[in-house]
């Protein structure tokens, strides 16, 4: 099991690195698609099967397609090489290292405060189906935030239709 997870992690990080550094924006978005798929595999290994499916439907089937559309319909955008001539390394490097350090510390502290699971308990946790529990939670104890988000999304949808209306 762990080998597959390790491969998925390497795959995701490698794709993400290509997304960040590839000069061609079209290639960057294709590798973004791969990174999304890798994240879905990681969700599977964390026992979040519904999230994995939703990740692929929304991010691969929706967001990536939209990005590809925008690139292909904008004239010559995909032929521009996005490379900075001046090699700015110092400030971004320091910023990235700083943010990375604080993120690592925060996550490390959080990981220490979590209860330790034995391998058997972990296996049992990942094998329990959570989709039904999630549905009950969303339409039960978290109904208000759920409905608030749906109203927000409906507003966004109506706004988009209004912006795109023929004059």
């Amino acid at each position: 099991m762990d080998l597959v997870l390790l491969l998925a992690e390497i795959f995701t990080v490698a794709s993400a690195v290509i997304v960040a550094f590839h000069p061609n924006i079209l290639y960057a978005s294709v590798f973004l698609l791969f990174a999304f798929c890798g994240v879905a595999v990681m969700f599977l290994f964390a026992g979040a099967d519904f999230l994995a499916g939703a990740q692929i439907i929304i991010y691969v089937g929706g967001v990536t397609i939209l990005i590809l559309f925008a690139i292909m319909l904008t004239q010559w955008l995909y032929k521009i090489k996005l490379v900075d001539i001046r090699n700015k390394m110092l400030l971004p490097g320091v910023l990235a290292l700083g943010i990375g350090f604080f993120l690592y510390r925060a996550l490390h502290q959080m990981a220490l405060s979590l209860p330790k699971l034995t391998p058997e308990a972990l296996d049992k946790f990942t094998a329990t189906p959570k989709t039904a529990l999630m549905g009950q939670a969303l339409l039960g104890s978290y109904l208000l935030p759920f409905e608030a988000i749906t109203i927000l999304l409906l507003g966004a949808l109506v706004g988009a239709v209004w912006l795109a209306r023929p004059e």
């Binding site: 079209l26 294709v30 698609l33 879905a40 099967d49 519904f50 994995a52 499916g53 939703a54 692929i56 439907i57 691969v60 089937g61 990536t64 397609i65 590809l68 559309f69 292909m72 189906p129 989709t131």
Partner: peptide
């Protein structure tokens, strides 16, 4: 017979759209 069978079919068949789009481009 996975727990999210129907969702899985919907999810993997979405891969077809980028395939067609990228091939066309």
């Amino acid at each position: 017979d996975v727990n999210i069978g129907v969702i899985l079919i919907l999810a993997v068949t979405t891969l077809i759209a980028p395939g067609i789009l990228l091939g066309a481009w």
